[in-house]
Design a binder for these strands. Structure first.
Lengths: 340, 340
DNA sequence: TTGTATGCGTTATCAT
DNA sequence: ATGATAACGCATACAA
């Protein structure tokens, strides 16, 4: 069976130049201890041979991979794609590779991925948690070995790892208050049943705004499902079956809001006249549905860059200097036709 | 500065059990040459220590990484996310890791990524090319070292690597013929200006269908832009400025078709009565626009699995058995309201 | 400024 | 069935 062709190593270069492998190694890493002429010769020969450093050997020696793991619930949302672009941007600059995996919203899957990433000796982890993930046990092996983990978007309260997130309560408040200022008084909130804290926070913002306007919280005006397109249709049905029809709906993501809008329109409801609608994320779909969807603009790209930025900082810093913290990003309301 | 804690190695286990490291290594890999009792002892102690194989050492020794590189133009489409899910599915099963990167449709970026992946010694590559990429020069280093590369979706004719794709001409034909059978006669085709072959093929299918219906090809009925949402609006404007308004439009992707539909509706055009519309890909957006968009269903998940499948086959096979080939997948028309 | 020697943790070859 | 030993390619402590 044909073996792989032999690679050019620093030894080959050293032999041809009558210097030691150590010198070649140093020259290639631009060590100032090597004289300019030798360095030049070495660079040239390396170039001529198309020399490639063997990263395993280097990693084996240095105990680091220059690889960071990224774990997200799903790759198929505009939001996540944008976050990852942000991460990539910084990672490329810093010469790090990305190992990307999706948990498909399954904690067991997430757990398996974390283990794999650990075995692959990633230098750090960037994670957005699956819905149902309720604790951070599976990241313990990382904290034990002092490998930094940064959570973004879907975070969990903890005092070990850094969290990057928006102020979901504020955003929920802004969305709801906007509807209230439009004169709407019966506002339905559509969200997800697994009470992940970001959705709880959005709800809290909703509740806070209602309270400010002296509107009592009514359990009937909270509809929990899975935030899919279909869930949006179900939410619409729920809305129409309510004894007093809502005049405003705040949906915790755009996709679901789009489904809701379509179902409402099909039922003859006018948007925004009869019911005003606000979504969340500011996905491109906002500009496709008619009327265009008012939403909370989520700074996805920036969040990706932030997450990577903090990871690299922690990688560079001494263990002791890694102060646990929460980084907040601004998320702003974008008003469009659905709440004209 | 605090060093990383020492890892448990096969030597540690060997020492504690009074066997050699070689035996431990064999046992851990379940080599039949090791007796059952020793194996058991070794497994137990390894488990107790939370032993983790050091992949660098293994890779260094075996000259392989069990990592495959995935390069896509963009991560932010439903289509790509689905393909990647398909790839992941098989890769996980086979115990391979995925290194995912996006070229952002930039050949230079693509080139850089290919180089990085090469340096990282990926065992194989799964690639969907950037629009403007016109040749496969940058993959030469892979063919030279006999590292398999599989192209999917955006492929380029070649006699070295395997291509996985749908029959774009057939699909373009199906889409156009559908409009023709609806009685439409002035059919505009909206596509992308960089003539990547998949778009050329779709156009050819369009031309073929017209020919069958004895309709002469008219350059005015071909609009080339970048297939973005905005390009869709521009295409609509173009359509309305034509001396004879089209009664059917075949757009080469759904996103652009959605933009086109919106602009047409805004201009007072009724869909499908005045103009029938067909998109491409069968993205979720098809079910969001009104009326729902007729499209070509692209078997994305299956394509991902196919690509991974063929890569693993080539990895397992002897060099000589790697017959270059093209794998075709079926793409079928899904009729919806936009061409009711 | 350069060289020597050694370790990083595995696996494969050859003995026993 | 098991052991001794030599790579794999690089980086570094120490010596010169």
């Amino acid at each position: 069976m044909e073996r792989k062709k032999k690679e050019v190593t620093i030894y080959d270069i050293a032999a041809q130049l009558n210097v030691s492998a150590a010198t070649v190694s140093r020259a290639l890493r631009d060590d100032p201890a090597v004289s300019a002429p030798t360095k030049k010769k070495i660079f040239e020969l390396a170039e001529a041979h198309g020399y490639q450093a063997n990263l395993f050997a280097r990693n084996l020696r240095q105990q680091q991979t220059r690889t960071i793991g990224v774990i997200v619930p799903r790759l198929n949302s505009y939001f996540m794609a944008t976050v990852i672009s942000g991460i990539e941007h910084l990672a490329n600059e810093a010469g790090y590779n990305l190992l990307i995996s999706q948990s498909s919203e399954l904690p067991e899957q997430e757990n398996a991925i974390v283990k794999t990433m650990f075995n692959n000796r990633v230098d750090g982890l960037l994670v957005s948690l699956a819905y149902p993930t309720a604790d951070l046990q599976h990241f313990k092996r990382f904290s034990q070995k002092h490998i930094p983990v940064i959570f973004f978007d879907r975070t969990l309260e903890n005092n070990i790892f850094t969290n990057i997130r928006i102020d979901n309560q504020q955003a929920g408040y802004d969305a709801t208050r906007h509807l209230l200022e439009l004169g709407r008084r019966r506002i339905l909130h559509v969200s997800v049943s697994h009470t992940h804290n970001i959705y709880r926070d959005r709800f809290n913002g909703y509740a806070q705004a209602l309270q400010e306007f002296h509107i009592p919280l009514d359990r009937n005006y909270l509809y929990l499902d899975d935030l899919s397109l279909e869930a949006g249709a179900r939410a619409a049905r729920h809305a129409l079956e309510l004894p007093e029809r809502p005049d405003g709906i705040f949906v915790a993501n755009d996709n679901c809001a789009a489904g809701c809008m379509m179902a409402l329109k099909k039922a003859g409801i006018r948007i925004p006249e009869d019911i005003a609608l606000v979504g969340f994320n500011d996905d491109p779909v906002c500009q496709i549905v008619e009327p265009n969807l008012t939403s909370i603009h989520y700074p996805a790209y920036e969040m990706g860059k932030m997450a990577a930025h903090h990871l690299f900082r922690q990688l560079a810093a001494d263990e002791a200097l890694r102060t646990t913290k929460v980084v907040g990003l601004r998320a702003e309301l974008v008003v469009r036709g659905s709440s004209g």
